[in-house]
């Protein structure tokens, strides 16, 4: 499922908003979530899961072209932990083939 398919599905399931507004709103939800994470805030959605940041400490990297070592500074990466309801529902669907 892609973002545009998600928008179509949501638009079909509610009566108040035209697709164009659902599109704006879905994109805005993703912006709001990205804003929170980029400010170091966690996201907690009951039944779905939580997003947080994990720290990756500084390390020595290597330029694959030249073989030179380069110092890489520490950074944060986004991390998602599925919630109980999502874990259970996904596992219950194990007999369905995985599709894109």
């Amino acid at each position: 499922m892609t973002k545009s398919e998600l928008i179509e599905l949501i638009a079909a399931k509610q009566q108040h908003l035209p697709t164009k507004d659902v599109e704006l709103a879905v994109k805005q939800v993703l912006e709001i979530m990205g804003d929170a994470l980029s400010q170091g805030s966690r996201i907690e959605i009951r039944g779905f899961g939580s997003f947080s940041l994990h720290f990756r400490p500084p390390r020595q990297g290597r330029n694959p072209k030249t073989g030179e070592t380069v110092a890489l500074s520490g950074k944060y990466v986004p991390h998602f932990k599925p919630g109980k309801d999502l874990r259970e529902r996904v596992n219950a669907g194990i007999d369905n083939p995985i599709r894109d």
Binding site: M1, K3, I10, Q14, L86, G93
Partner: peptide, 23 residues
């Protein structure tokens, strides 16, 4: 309603074996 539907549709897709790509 929109926020509820947003997460519910993601869950529904994943539970039927459909992966989700949000570019």
């Amino acid at each position: 309603e929109l926020v509820d539907l947003f997460f519910e549709e993601l869950r529904a897709a994943l539970s039927t074996g459909e992966q989700v790509k949000l570019s």
